[in-house]
Design a protein around this nucleic acid. Structure first.
Lengths: 359, 359
DNA sequence: GTAAATATCTTTACCGGTACAGAAACCCGT
DNA sequence: ACGGGTTTCTGTACCGGTAAAGATATTTAC
């Protein structure tokens, strides 16, 4: 449904009496022709309303598409914070943009994901904290695309960018132990609806999600070493449920004195529930989050949490992917290495009296 | 740098002694050939490791790319909440996925955006709450792509999806007026660093951002009608600054009794600052946000705010874009209409005592 | 039993570019 | 003046598909 015949390289070439290749070079390889001619070509193109080479045609000819995909776990989005995801995406996109690559979202929640993963043109992809058993992930692998796994345990030989979830969680739990807590609740999705007061091992489904599995493992390591058995486990399916779950938690006769939360967003819900139950934080209940989400500073008391640098994670993932893509063309480049970014415990008001008001 | 010669439609055709077109149809138009032959073709393709038609080649031939772009205002991301952006993107992506379209992010913060907007293949685009003077937006228009403007005032003849920012803001301000407040602060980015205690008209830069301009206009309409002149204006550049700014606000001798905040995220920072200053909310200070961000329920007291349905907005935008794209092929389709989604004031604890604990 | 409709596959003609290997003209030092 | 290196442009050969119309069977309708 184009009103007029499309302007192509050839049509410009014809009007100027030069070869099509020369016009192509005027746009893509300015050093291949004289400035004078290039100027005439660009002027003619402008007057004809030509906008530059057609992206699809160029992709076909060059083999590069100008975009990389992100397999995005929208289910986990409910457990992790959207803000963290958005920040990550922003960091990746920013790091990619100078090289002219855009970021294509392949949300896993939608029905069409397999089709997307199979049919959308891309030069590489990032799998961001999604279930490793996802069919769409299979397709990306079969397409033999450069692939970076973020917050996931990568298959052998694949590149992963992770953070030290386990170490951070261990530090968080150890912090509570050091404060003398012996009745500690774990507030995390990943256990089934039948999760009892004392948690068993993580069910298979949760074990697949590295973020949950590792943080859980870290907590358990520190607690077990101290002889503390987590007394209660609460399994919010959505963040919205976390508050409701926390209320149940506090109603228990054997109320915990501290809560380890999978994320800051969940911790915030626990704080709100504690306030509603008339519990003082940190005196009656200590609360620890994870991520150092911006909101950890906006709660009152401020939230003790484990800081991760989402921005750095995004940039590292983008750089690793760029390296992989470059490696396709130049086999002499070394493969990017797996990276595990450090995290750091941030002690604030929700576990230490006196921290409430100040940073 | 492919290890072996690429498997193409032709190579499959050759091995089976059929025409290339038939193989193409086996993948793209199953009704064009017998099931028996199709089965043999697919089996052969499978054994050769063929993954389906090459996306770039297909785009070139069909003129469709399978992706739409989103011009994403990463600057505004700091003022609006990331969570709201992420939710919006998720809704758009979900609505698009069944039709096989992926979502390509074109972040405006990055340097390469113009290149992206010009060179990335897409079938259409959504401009999401970004500065209308953006060069990248020009390119999208010049490419003559189907384009939907979200939270922006669309140029004549273009499609826009907005919410009733002005009406919502008016209702929020009226609510405060009705409660008897006469000293009202506006907490919003958009004024320069020299913004005085009494705000003048919005500067040009802010006027371009529809969300800021409209909400501001709505506030002023209600306040002026009631003879209330906003006493103080505070201009956080980032959300992180909002708390700091609010502290200055409260230090003033002529402390306001209520604060109208551009977003819930900013309101949350104001709440935290109020707590630090020893002010009781809502008794000493009433606070109103905007968006009905999930966190509005997680603050204590819960936050009075103006609810918008971000999910509906995303879906509406996606549907409008799909209509525009379909209209390219079938001129008989009517153009999607501009839509302005309703909003609703949600009164909670931050303006009304007694609402603190309950929803 | 025969003409028209249907199913199945093939032919032809693109889609709009880029890579790479020349070819022609030009420049330079000696 | 002459061989060799540049610069600047052109020719050829793809990149990997799809659309639309044509060519044969094979049915169906009556």
């Amino acid at each position: 449904m184009r009103a007029i015949a499309r302007v192509t390289l050839q049509s410009i070439a014809d009007r100027l009496g030069v070869s099509r290749m020369t016009v192509s070079n005027a746009f893509s390889r300015p050093d291949q022709l004289s400035d004078a001619l290039r100027g005439r070509i660009l002027a003619e193109a402008e007057s004809l309303g030509y906008l530059g080479p057609d992206p699809s045609a160029r992709s076909l000819a060059t083999g590069a598409t100008g975009a990389v995909g992100v397999l995005w776990a929208t289910e986990l989005r409910q457990a992790l914070s959207d803000e963290v995801s958005a920040r990550f995406l922003g960091a990746v996109a920013d790091e990619l943009a100078p090289s002219g690559l855009a970021l294509t979202l392949l949300p896993t929640r939608a029905e069409g994901t397999v089709v997307l993963a199979r049919d959308v043109a891309m030069d590489g992809a990032i799998a961001f904290s999604c279930d490793p058993r996802l069919p769409a992930l299979d397709w990306l692998q079969r397409r033999n695309l450069p692939l970076v796994y973020v917050d996931m345990t990568a298959p052998r030989g694949q590149v992963s960018i992770t953070i030290d979830d386990r170490g951070g969680a261990r530090a968080a739990a150890q912090h509570l132990v050091d404060l003398g807590h012996r009745k500690v609740a774990l507030v995390t999705p990943g256990f089934g609806p039948d999760a009892g007061p004392t948690p068993g091992p993580l069910p298979e489904a949760a074990r697949q999600l590295r973020v949950i599995a590792e943080r859980h493992a870290g907590w358990m390591e520190a607690l077990m070493a101290a002889g503390v058995e987590p007394t209660l486990v609460n399994q919010p399916k959505h963040v919205a449920d976390a508050g409701e779950g926390a209320r149940l938690l506090f109603a228990s006769s054997d109320r915990p004195t501290a809560a380890l939360c999978l994320t800051d967003v969940i911790a915030q819900a626990v704080l709100a529930a504690a306030a509603d139950a008339g519990l003082r934080v940190p005196e009656d209940l200590a609360v620890v989050g994870f991520d150092d989400h911006p909101l950890a500073l906006r709660t009152r008391p401020t939230l003790t949490t484990v800081r991760q640098d989402v921005d750095a994670k995004g940039r590292a993932a983008a750089r690793a992917l760029l390296r992989l893509i470059a490696g396709r063309a130049d086999a002499s480049l070394s493969r990017p290495r797996n990276r595990c970014l450090p995290v750091q415990l941030q002690v604030r008001g929700s576990t230490q009296a006196g921290f409430s008001r100040t940073e």
